[in-house]
Computed example of a mutant assay.
Amino acid sequence: MPQYLVYFNQQWVGDHTEEWFRGRGDLARAVVREMEAAGVLVCTGGLEEETEQAFSADPTSGTVLFSDGPYAETKEYLGGLAVIDVADEDQARVWAGKIAEACGWPQEVRRFKPFDPEAG
């Protein structure tokens, strides 16, 4: 079955009260439990918001160079993700919609390229 990445950029979340966020937690956990029960969840998680805790690994010089912070300076950065394993795009849309409704902000969906272990 194809796998899809369902994700959001932190900037899509918007400004909300702490109470609003606490109210979303139970909804989001319920969708995760539903995905687990349906056998479609590969992994999910929210990322730390502080980009100062990020680091990068860059092999382009011939030696891997590790540096603090995100690789690229950008206004948008990944906030959280789910990887789902579903039969088709229609099912990916169903789960992405449930995630978006539970979180209360937009989600983007992208299909993973099929993995060919024989390709060289």
Results as ranks from 00 to 15, higher is better:
M1S: 07
M1Q: 03
Y4L: 09
L5V: 09
V6L: 14
Y7I: 10
Y7F: 15
F8G: 04
F8L: 09
N9K: 10
Q10P: 00
W12G: 05
G14V: 00
D15E: 10
D15L: 06
D15F: 00
T17Q: 08
F21K: 01
F21Y: 14
R24S: 10
G25K: 03
G25C: 07
G25Y: 08
D26N: 12
L27D: 15
R29N: 11
A30D: 07
V31P: 00
M35Q: 14
L41C: 11
V42Q: 14
C43Q: 14
C43E: 15
T44N: 12
G46E: 12
L47H: 04
E48D: 15
E48V: 11
E49D: 11
E50V: 03
E52T: 12
Q53F: 12
Q53S: 11
A54G: 02
F55P: 02
A57M: 13
T60Y: 04
S61I: 05
S61N: 10
S61K: 10
T63D: 12
T63M: 11
L65G: 09
S67M: 01
G69Q: 11
G69M: 04
Y71G: 02
A72L: 15
E73F: 07
T74C: 10
E76D: 13
Y77M: 08
Y77N: 04
L78V: 03
L81C: 10
A82I: 05
A82E: 12
V83D: 15
V83W: 13
V83C: 13
I84G: 06
D85T: 01
V86S: 08
V86Y: 04
A87W: 03
D90V: 01
D90F: 07
A92R: 02
A92P: 04
V94S: 02
W95V: 01
W95K: 08
W95R: 05
A96T: 03
K98V: 01
K98L: 09
K98M: 10
A100P: 00
A100K: 11
C103F: 14
C103K: 08
G104V: 04
G104H: 05
W105G: 03
W105S: 04
E108A: 14
V109Y: 05
R110A: 13
R110M: 10
R111L: 04
K113C: 06
K113V: 06
F115V: 13
D116T: 09
E118G: 05
E118H: 08
